[in-house]
Design a protein around this nucleic acid. Structure first.
Length: 263
DNA sequence: ACTACGTCCTGCGAGC
DNA sequence: TGCTCGCAGGACGTAG
C-alpha cells in the first residue's frame, strides 16, 4: 500500500524521465476513476510533485494530473499497453510509455487546475518532513478531534502521507496505544518525532514492499526488513520481548505492544 | 459540524 | 486436489 515513502520514491524516479516530455497519446481502462487519463493528450509535463500520497504532474496549460495509487497502484515504463491490469497509460514524445497498473482498482486519476483541489487532497495536513510539521501543530491538530489517534493519522488531516503501516510503526516507536483519543503534549512531541523517523528511514530504504509495491523502475523497496511493529503480531516486541498483539481499530488491522503502548 | 461504518475491488491463503 | 470464504486497506459516501 503506497504511503508517503513509496510515492516519494516513485516521484524521484519519474521526475528526470517525465519533465519536459510531451504526451502524444493515452488510454484508460473503462472506468470513471481512470478516464481523465486521456484529457491531457498534447500537454507537456513541467514538474512532478508530491503531496502526501498524491502525485501531481504539472502540465503546461496550468492544469495538474493528480494520481493516487490506492492499494495496489504501480507506475513504471511499459513496452506496450497489453497488461490486463493496466488502468491507464501515456505515450511520451520519446516513444517511452508510462503505465499505471492497479490490480484492485482502488487508485484514481483526476485532472484539475493547479492548486484547485477537492476531497482529501484539499484538506491534507502538512508534509511530515517539512518545517511546517511541528510538535505544537500536531498537538493542536489532534486536540480538535475525539477520534482514536490512529484514525486521525489515517484521515490525513493532522499530517499528510501516513497510512496503516507507518501509523502502526509511529505509534509503536512513540509508545502510544493507537486507540487513545487524547494526547499529552509530551506524547504529541514523541509521536511527531516518531512519524518523521519512520517515514524518513522508509524513504532512505526505498519504501516498504509487502506484496505489490514496486518503484518506477519495477524494483521492490527494502524497508519491510526494518519494520518493528506492523505485521509482527505474535512475534516478540523489540523493546520488552512480549509478543506483539493484533486488534482492529475503526475497521483497520492494527499491531501493537500491550506492554509498551499503554492506554 | 462531527463520528462511525459500509462500499469499492481482486488476489491470496486458510480451512474443509 | 479443488473449492469457498474471509481478509487486506485509502478514500469516500451515507447515516445518525
Amino acid at each position: 500500500m503506497p504511503e508517503l515513502p513509496e510515492v516519494e520514491s516513485i516521484r524521484q524516479q519519474l521526475e528526470p524521465w517525465l519533465v519536459g516530455r510531451q504526451i502524444i497519446s493515452a488510454g484508460n481502462y473503462p472506468s470513471a476513476k481512470f478516464s481523465p487519463a486521456i484529457e491531457i493528450i498534447g500537454m507537456r509535463v513541467e514538474y512532478v510533485n508530491r503531496r502526501g500520497k498524491y502525485l501531481l504532474l504539472g502540465l503546461d496549460d496550468g492544469r495538474e494530473l493528480v494520481i493516487h495509487l490506492g492499494m495496489t497502484g504501480q507506475l513504471f515504463p511499459i513496452e506496450s499497453p497489453t497488461d490486463p491490469h493496466l488502468r491507464a497509460w501515456w505515450e511520451m514524445d520519446d516513444e517511452s510509455i508510462l503505465g499505471f497498473r492497479d490490480v484492485r482498482r482502488f487508485g484514481r486519476i483526476r485532472v484539475v487546475d493547479a492548486n484547485c483541489y477537492e476531497g482529501t487532497l484539499a484538506i491534507l495536513g502538512p508534509e511530515p518532513l517539512s518545517e511546517e510539521f511541528t510538535p505544537e501543530q500536531l498537538y493542536a491538530a489532534v486536540k480538535k478531534s475525539s477520534r482514536r489517534i490512529k484514525t486521525q493519522l489515517l484521515s490525513q488531516k493532522p499530517v499528510a502521507g501516513v497510512g496503516n503501516i507507518y501509523a502502526d510503526e509511529a505509534c509503536f516507536r512513540a509508545g502510544i496505544y493507537p486507540g487513545v483519543r487524547k494526547l499529552t503534549k509530551t506524547q504529541a512531541k514523541d509521536l511527531h518525532e516518531s512519524i518523521r523517523h519512520v517515514l524518513s528511514v522508509a524513504v532512505e530504504n526505498g519504501g516498504t514492499t509487502l506484496r505489490d509495491y514496486v518503484n518506477a523502475e519495477g524494483q521492490k523497496g527494502t524497508n519491510q526488513h526494518f519494520l518493528t511493529c506492523y505485521g509482527r503480531w505474535d512475534e516478540p516486541c523489540f523493546n520488552c520481548g512480549e509478543p506483539l498483539r493484533r486488534t482492529v481499530i475503526d475497521n483497520r488491522g492494527t499491531t501493537f505492544c500491550g506492554s509498551c503502548q499503554r492506554r
